[in-house]
C-alpha cells in the first residue's frame, strides 16, 4: 500500500473555545478521497474517536506534541468496512459511483419492493450501486442489507413521499448460498 496523503484538521481552536468538534471531524472524513487519510490536531488524546473511525475503516496512530497537544493520523485500511458488517453499512459517507441499475418500486405491494431489491443486488458485482424509489422507508430491508454486508444510504425526497435508497454491494458480501 502506498503512503496515503493526509488532509489536515485542527480542532484545537474549537476545543479551546469550549466547542464540540465531532461534527467537523465527521464532515472532514466524509470529504476524503479514496486512499486519503486525516491528520487531526487536538488538545487531548481523542480516545472515543478511535473506535468510531476504526468502524469506518481507519487505523489510527497518535502521538503527543510538545505543549500537551496531540496529533493523530487516521489512515484508511483496505478491508476494514467489510469486517464490521452491519455497523459500517449505513455510515459510509464517501462518494459512491453512479448507480448501474434503477428500480421504481413505488407502486408495488409490500413486501414486493424489498423482494425485487434483494433479487436485483444478487446480480451486481462488489462496489456497484443500485438505486430504488419506494413509497415508504424500507425498515425490514435495511437490517437484511446490513446482514449481507452491503452498504446503503437513503432518505425521503423533497416531496416527503418518495423514499430513495441506494445500495452499494459490499466487499464483504457473503458468498452466495
Amino acid at each position: 500500500m502506498t503512503t496515503p496523503s493526509f488532509v489536515d484538521l485542527d480542532v484545537r481552536p474549537v476545543l479551546r473555545a469550549g466547542g464540540e468538534p465531532f461534527g467537523a471531524i465527521m464532515e472532514a472524513i466524509a470529504t476524503l478521497k479514496p486512499g486519503q487519510g486525516l491528520r487531526l490536531l487536538a488538545t487531548f488524546k481523542p480516545t472515543p474517536l478511535f473506535q468510531v473511525l476504526s468502524s469506518r475503516g481507519f487505523a489510527h496512530e497518535a502521538r503527543e506534541l510538545e505543549g500537551g497537544d496531540w496529533e493523530v493520523l487516521f489512515r484508511p485500511t483496505a478491508a476494514a468496512p467489510a469486517a464490521e458488517g452491519a455497523k459500517t453499512a449505513p455510515s459510509d459517507d464517501s462518494p459512491w459511483p453512479e448507480p448501474v441499475q434503477h428500480l421504481d418500486n413505488r407502486d408495488l405491494d409490500p413486501p414486493e419492493p424489498m423482494v425485487r431489491i434483494l433479487a436485483a443486488i444478487e446480480a451486481l458485482k462488489p462496489g456497484e450501486v443500485l438505486s430504488a424509489l419506494l413509497c415508504r422507508e424500507p425498515i425490514f430491508l435495511l437490517p437484511e442489507l446490513a446482514k449481507r454486508g452491503h452498504g446503503w444510504r437513503g432518505g425521503f425526497e423533497a416531496d416527503g413521499k418518495t423514499y430513495r435508497v441506494e445500495v452499494r454491494i459490499g466487499a464483504g458480501a457473503e458468498a452466495k448460498a
Binding site: 468538534p21 465531532f22 481523542p46 472515543p48 468510531v52 425490514f140 435495511l142
Partner: peptide, 25 residues
C-alpha cells in the same frame, strides 16, 4: 475525563445507536 472528552463520547454513543438501522422481528 474532561468536558470535551465527555461531549465527544456522548456523540460517539449516539452515533453508534444511529448506526443500527431498521427493525428486526
Amino acid at each position: 475525563m474532561n468536558a470535551s472528552d465527555r461531549a465527544l463520547s456522548d456523540a460517539v454513543a449516539s452515533e453508534r445507536n444511529a448506526t443500527l438501522p431498521g427493525v428486526s422481528l
